[in-house]
Design a protein around this nucleic acid. Structure first.
Length: 694
DNA sequence: GCAAGGTC
């Protein structure tokens, strides 16, 4: 006899905490059901390695290969799609640990319940459904499963959700689960492109570790590479154009809308420009208009934007993510991994009593914080977490935050000022416009600040605005002059620029966008070098990019297509198998392209190669053991190449001896036999010397 | 040694 009607499964600790608050405890009665709340921390399960999802020895060999391109594309029907406990990484202890204990803890609580309720936020990608079902399947649950979804974690929303729970016991009829499961399989299959790229780079003679490719990674490195090409190919082409200037320095110019207009107004030489200018005379300024305008504070920032602001101050994304996480756990800042850029009225109200204290800590002028209502442009009707902002717990000082990490003070200051700006009044300015009496096509326009208001707290505009120092006195006359301009230089790749690109194409999520950039910019095998937010590709990064030129995986369109099909799966209009199969179409298409691109690598990375030595995969010998088992092993050892006779002896399980060389170059006689060995947790067959008998 | 998606 069960003790509980319902085991409520939350996605993470903070959600479980909010539910406990909403329902009156970690266990009790809600909506007429007895319950207990447990929580995961994200995905607790993940796919096993490819070679561990297949049955036969031949399949295991096929799916272990990094060097035989004939083994790809993989046949996904060979896979069991079995999952194993994920390794969770703790940034405090810098240790990774299996989620086995977490799953078992949930399992033992479930033993007391009649049903499990998957309770995660209303994420249209279905990720909450997937991680819920992963746990339900892992504990071999065979009783009813229910589902609630909620837009935010306020008691009101959570209690409402409890009154509209639905039964979803058949997971294969649940669109959200099916679509997200298909997405995860698609992404998993895309790992073939990493093996293909690694192989292709080595074949081309590059001593590389792993050349990672995927929907995010490939798009990011290729985009940076293409932009770098544009910059390298950029030729500054000056042009000379007639403009006018008044005594205060205001420029009067024509607005050149298309290329045709630009061609007729701009000249290639200064001489021709001067000839054009000579056609004009000094002109009185007329039609001066002064219009009063206002501008409300901009949007609140998300994590990617915060990362790019701090990058300019010299903090790297990896450190910012880790420090932010620690500050979130201390409740000093709000939940990090959100895509929300607005907040709900409740979230606004919650913070209102402490805004003066926050202002004091960051040194903002409290007298500017007069707009104590939430503007509609910042208000969301639903937001699970709300935009990144300070928490209700206010630190005693900025200095006290240093214990969370090097960027802690900068994170808090930036978040706080950005948030406090929405409590400032609108920026007030005069828009002044004027034109020339003799040549009315020549116009000027500029803004004169009247009251900075919110901009005095946090200025969100890029600095390419008109200078504030221009005088607001226009005219009375303006004289023609030769203006020298040039075609614009392509933007330098930066964290901000990549963030906007990914967001525009809907690639990755708020959490993964910054995470992947952190991954690509750190470690020994980094693909991107980050210099105060500006990106350049390292040598392996350049190799990764060149290999995916003209490929599908390097195109933002592949994610769009994947998501479009996922939506159809979600509506049960399309079979998940079609989505998963489309990954195989990508491998078929991209494999020959990557191999072809590898032949052009020297053209782009040739000069940067440190080790010019050709580097090829070690030659392997295939054969059969006396028990019939097929094995593959290196055909050389210690500088010695096994003879045909030695290979037969090794396969027969015999001990052989030969002249070998140590790494230091010392000659000795090696004796040993063929053995199954383990390297970094992976099993392989190879010659094993018996040093005891040497 | 591999992906992207959650999480700490």
């Amino acid at each position: 006899m069960s003790i509980l009607d319902m085991l409520i499964l939350a996605e993470k600790a903070s959600a479980a905490k909010h539910m406990a608050k909403a329902f009156g405890g970690t266990s009790g009665t809600v909506a007429g059901k007895t319950y207990k709340i447990v929580h995961a921390h994200g995905h607790l399960m993940e796919f096993k390695d490819p070679e561990k999802m297949v049955k036969t020895d031949a399949e295991k060999e096929r799916y272990s290969s990094w060097s035989d391109m004939k083994t790809m594309p993989w046949n996904q029907a060979d896979f069991s799609w079995a999952k194993t406990y994920a390794k969770s990484y703790n940034s405090y202890t810098k240790k990774s640990k299996s989620t086995r204990d977490d799953v078992n803890a949930i399992k033992s609580e479930a033993a007391n319940a009649d049903a499990i309720l998957i309770a995660t936020d209303n994420d249209p990608s279905g990720e909450g459904d997937l991680l819920g079902w992963e746990i339900v399947n892992a504990i071999k649950w065979n009783k009813p499963v229910y589902r609630i979804r909620f837009a935010d974690e306020t008691p009101k929303s959570l209690n409402q959700a409890m009154h509209s729970m639905v039964e979803i016991t058949d997971q294969f009829k649940q669109g959200e689960y099916l679509k997200s499961d298909a997405r995860s399989k698609w992404d998993f299959l895309s790992m073939q492109l990493t093996r293909i790229s690694t192989y292709a780079a080595r074949q081309a003679g590059y001593r590389v570790k792993v050349i990672n490719q995927g929907r995010l990674k490939s798009v990011i490195v290729l985009k940076i590479w293409q932009q770098q090409q544009l910059i390298d190919q950029y030729v500054k082409t000056p042009y000379y154009e007639a403009k006018f200037k008044d005594p205060a320095g205001h420029i009067f110019a024509r607005s050149l809308k298309d290329d045709e207009q630009k061609r007729t107004a701009r000249f290639a030489t200064e001489k021709d420009g001067q000839a054009e200018v000579d056609k004009y005379t000094k002109s009185p300024v007329t039609n001066i208009k002064r219009q009063h305008k206002t501008q409300a504070p901009g949007a609140l920032i998300d994590l990617a934007k915060l990362g790019s602001i701090l990058a300019k101050q010299g903090f790297n994304s990896k450190e910012v993510l880790a420090t932010y996480q620690k500050m979130y756990e201390a409740e000093i800042v709000s939940y990090p991994r959100t895509e929300d850029k607005k907040i709900t009225q409740e979230q606004f109200n919650e913070l209102l009593p402490v805004v003066d204290a926050i202002a004091q800590v960051v040194g903002a002028n409290q007298q500017l914080l007069t707009h104590r209502t939430l503007r509609s442009k910042h208000r969301a009707t639903e937001a699970a977490h709300g935009a990144n902002r300070p928490g209700v717990k206010v630190p005693s000082s900025l200095e006290s935050l240093s214990k969370y990490g090097p960027s802690a003070q900068a994170i808090y200051r930036t978040l706080a000022l950005n948030y406090l700006a929405i409590l400032g009044e609108d920026y007030q300015f005069d828009r002044v416009t004027a034109e020339l009496e003799l040549y009315p096509d020549f116009k000027t326009g500029f803004n004169v600040p009247v009251q900075l208001n919110y901009k005095a707290i946090f200025d969100d505009t890029d600095s390419d605005d008109e200078s504030n120092s221009v005088s607001d006195v226009v005219g009375p006359e303006a004289e023609p002059f030769v203006y020298q301009g040039a075609n614009p230089k392509p933007t330098r790749p930066s964290a901000d620029w990549i963030g906007k690109f990914l967001e525009k194409h809907n690639i990755g999520t708020g959490a993964t966008r910054l995470g992947v950039q952190a991954q690509l910019t750190s470690g020994k095998n980094a693909f991107i070098k980050d210099q105060k937010g500006f990106y350049t590709l390292t040598q392996p990064g350049t190799i990764a990019a060149v290999l995916v030129r003209d490929s599908w995986i390097g195109s933002p369109n592949i994610t769009k297509q994947l998501f479009d099909h996922m939506d159809e799966v979600g509506k049960l209009n399309e079979s998940p198998a079609i989505v998963v199969n489309s990954a195989t179409r990508v491998i078929e298409h991209d494999l020959p392209i990557i191999l072809k691109n590898s032949r052009e690598l020297t053209q782009f990375v040739g000069k940067q190669v440190k080790a010019t030595k050709k580097y090829a995969a070690k030659p392997k010998t295939k054969g059969q053991l006396t028990n019939g088992k097929a094995v593959e092993f290196s055909s050389t050892w210690g500088g010695h190449k096994f003879t045909e006779g030695e290979i037969q002896q090794l396969l027969a399980g015999q001990v052989i001896s030969f002249a070998a060389k140590s790494k230091a170059g010392k000659a000795y006689t090696a004796s040993g036999m063929l053995k199954e060995q383990t390297y970094k947790g992976k099993k392989f067959w190879g010659f094993k010397a018996d040093f005891g008998k040497k």
